[in-house]
Amino acid sequence: MAAKVFTIDGQEISATEGQSVLEAAHEAGIRIPTLCHLEGVMDVGACRLCLVEIAGSNKLVPACTTQVADGMVVATTSERLQRYRRLLLELLFAERNHVCAVCVSNGHCELQSLAMHLGMDHVSFPYTFPKLEVDLTHRLFGMDHNRCVLCGRCVRVCWYVEGAATKNFSGRGASSRIISDLNQPWGESRTCTACGKCVHACPTGALFEKGTTVGEMQKDRGKLEYIVTAREKKQWIV
């Protein structure tokens, strides 16, 4: 595969052809904020937090779905990008009911930590305070829609890693919801294998293991990466 050389935040780095700007940046130790990106499953460009500027174009592009090209000049930290990222986080916090103080994921949450690192000290939009369900019908896991950011990571691991195709989206716009099967209670799903991959893929406290209380739900991404790597490199245990 051909190597590509491009510049990111003033630093020249090389990448392999077909690599995304995000991957190449991470390999070079440059962190770009992400939320819908999950190592091991395809990218969808939904959260827009990884937007970057490309010299010569005034269109912002998501680093996760943009392939590197020779001579590309990428900027990831302009004042404008930082401001947009903060506003996007504010929109997410205002959209559902995030009460970190009483959340299972408090202290281990990607959303909470993004707010921290991007300097979001408050939400400047009115909170919408929607009335949302909590599905506790599953034997092992719970789903709290109040904390879901609709990143779709659970859906993608469920379809493309586990292959169960239990999780999906329903509705559109602000009425979008993550559902199990054809919107059954999770516990009644015939397809769910109770593998727990969605729980560990979820960046927030929306999906959790039953029996965890405030701050106890730590997600194990290592397991997912392990499975995906094993599959890609055919490292089967025989």
């Binding site: 009911n97 009460v99 103080a101 009483v102 408050h122 909170y127 305070f129 929607p130 009335k131 949302l132």
Partner: peptide, 20 residues
């Protein structure tokens, strides 16, 4: 100064808001 989460976000005090 908004001092603490309830002042900043509504937090636990606002848990009742979804009731309408």
């Amino acid at each position: 100064v908004a001092f603490g989460d309830c002042a900043v976000t509504g937090n636990v005090t606002a848990l009742r808001n979804p009731l309408g």
